[in-house]
Amino acid sequence: MSEQAHPARPGENSGSTDPGSKISVRGLKKSFGTNEVLKGIDVEVADGEVVCVIGPSGSGKSTFLRCLNKLEDITAGSVLVGGIDLTEPKVDLNKVRQQIGMVFQHFNLFPHMTVLENITLAPVELKKQTKEQARQSGMDLLKRVGLEEKADARPASLSGGQKQRVAIARALAMNPGIMLFDEATSALDPEMVGEVLQVIRDLAAVGMTMVVVTHEMGFAREVADRVIFMADGVICEQGSPEEIFSHAQQSRLQDFLAKVL
């Protein structure tokens, strides 16, 4: 998987779409009022590719990620997921979102439900599975993140690391082809970061397509097929972890790395 062909750097191939792309972003712009946060993003993510997004605070990483499942309205440009253009007015967003799992910095678990109910809510409500099937596959997912004994616990009784592992299990419940992580470990105490990263690492190992916004440079270096450096609403530089971390071209990236490494 590390031998993926990397799409060209921004601006170089604005024309054609790689048919193997799971995600294809072209000319993406996003403004909040008059504040233009994304200023034209072009990116292709191939099937099974792990893309890590790094960059300074406020550079638009979260906004970019949230445009990929249209949690944010898109101001201009297009976002294609599995060949479906999310900017089309007629597109069934709920269908598309079932294909994209998302993990949030602050977990966003449903506090009024047990851990297992958090996971089975979507499959049962969307009639993908019967209650019993959902329970079974929910337990399997919990086993996978090492929390089967917490099935009947409330989120409030879990540690931060456990919460985030449940959130990942929940995001996996609809069996998505893509996973989006927005600083999944930033709200965690340092001793819990490892357990969550291990779960993401495991997902990478089984070939899950992932876009991971992270501040964990070591992790990005280890897991990413490609690293994207965002600054000021544009992709400033991208490449293999080696290229980004050891042979940074631009001074902004060099400055950024000097601060975080």
Partner: peptide, 15 residues
């Protein structure tokens, strides 16, 4: 209610 709750639910594909 934390807006993140609605976002988490919508991101699962629930209407």
């Amino acid at each position: 209610v934390d807006p993140g709750q609605l976002e988490a639910s919508r991101s699962l594909g629930l209407g």
